[in-house]
């Protein structure tokens, strides 16, 4: 099933609309005409085998890479090729596959730095609330580089909370973390979703995909192969072939 290729009508806009986006690195076509959208308040999961173009797509949406061609609309704004900081200021936040912390700063400092541009009013109070929400209070004054791997994932998630974003891109945010930390992150996602935040999530953990995502988008070879509810996706033999390397 291909995604909508028409630009959305005003008033009925998805939070993220991607149409015919291409990106190549040398001879490698990392995005080969990606079409997809993420609805407002939706949690959309993005799955696909390694090298399918998921992280490239995130980088294109977040402004870390410039598309060769195609259209990317975020909240009605054309963002394709815009600088990352401008896109962030529009209300898009992201995490990185490998936590990209401000390692010489404290945990509190990391949270405050996330609010330093644009959302400063009440930042200290929000940082305290975020520390409590993510159970990071005991390590608030520790350097970020002193945290465990799971705590680093939590802190990076805390930073996107501090951004008060309308769309959050999560790149394997629960990969390799302790079940307790995973639970904390999932609860925080649910809470933000209740407040109207939309999510676009790269995830290999099928259990999390099933429990959290409203809709799954499957990528392979730089294209969207299909999308739909988790139950429909797992019934799709083509998907199971490409994703798991075996027919169902």
């Amino acid at each position: 099933m291909s995604m909508t290729a028409q630009a959305p009508a005003p008033g009925d806009q998805p939070i993220l609309f991607v149409r015919d986006v291409h990106k190549h690195f040398g001879g490698i076509q990392a995005a080969a005409g990606v079409d997809l959208e993420v609805g407002r308040g939706e949690i959309a999961g993005l799955i696909g085998p390694n090298g399918s173009g998921k992280s490239t797509l995130f980088n294109l949406v977040a402004g870390m890479e410039t598309p060769d061609r195609g259209q990317i609309l975020f909240d009605g704004h054309e963002i394709g090729g815009k600088k990352a900081y401008r896109i962030a200021r529009l209300g898009l936040a992201r995490t990185f596959q490998i936590p990209a912390l401000f390692e010489n700063m404290t945990v509190s400092g990391n949270l405050l730095a996330a609010a330093a541009e644009g959302h400063w009013h009440g930042a200290q109070q929000r940082a305290d609330e975020t520390l409590a929400l993510l159970h990071l209070e005991p390590v608030a004054n520790n350097r970020a580089s002193d945290l465990s791997g799971g705590q680093q994932k939590l802190l990076e998630f805390g930073r996107v909370i501090m951004r008060q974003a309308s769309l959050i891109l999560l790149d394997e945010v629960t990969a390799g973390v302790h079940p307790n930390i995973r639970k904390i992150i999932l609860e925080a996602i649910a809470r933000l979703r209740e407040q109207g935040t939309s999510f676009f999530v790269i995830e290999h953990d099928m259990e999390m995909v099933r429990n959290v995502c409203d809709r799954i988008i499957v990528m392979d070879s730089g294209r969207v192969v299909t999308s739909g509810a988790f139950e429909d996706i797992v019934q799709n033999s083509e998907v199971m072939q490409t994703y798991l390397g075996r027919p169902q």
Binding site: A62, G63, M64, K83, A84, Y85, A88, R89, A93, R94, F96, A100, L101, F102, E103, N104, M105, G109, L112, A113, A114, A116, E117, G118, W120, R159, R163
Partner: peptide, 24 residues
């Protein structure tokens, strides 16, 4: 100040600082 937070953020991870809206 906020300025110092921005400066130290870009020192530690420039792409992440940009992703936080900081014009590095």
């Amino acid at each position: 100040s906020r300025f110092g937070l921005k400066v130290k953020a870009l020192r530690d991870h420039e792409p992440a600082a940009e992703a936080m809206g900081i014009n590095t």
